[in-house]
Amino acid sequence: MDVIYFLIPLALILLVAAVAAFFWAVRHDQFEDLDREANRILFDEDLQRDAKPRPQDRTPPP
């Protein structure tokens, strides 16, 4: 079990890295507008679905 003397400090270093990444994200406005990002992906998909069939309508089937 003495491996914990090595693994736990290693985990601590990872923790520090995670906290640093989190603070960086907050400072760079990654948490500013959560509502919009949550929805954006849905809309883009729809746009493509709506836009794609149009040119295909005109191409004759092979």
């Binding site: 736990i8 923790l15 906290v19 907050v26 400072r27």
Partner: peptide
């Protein structure tokens, strides 16, 4: 708002670790 987010995030990460120990 940024400060509160950082405080909360740190507390959350810290609490998870300490609970594990």
């Amino acid at each position: 708002s940024q400060q509160a987010t950082m405080r909360l995030g740190l507390a959350g990460l810290g609490a998870m670790q300490v609970m594990m120990y």
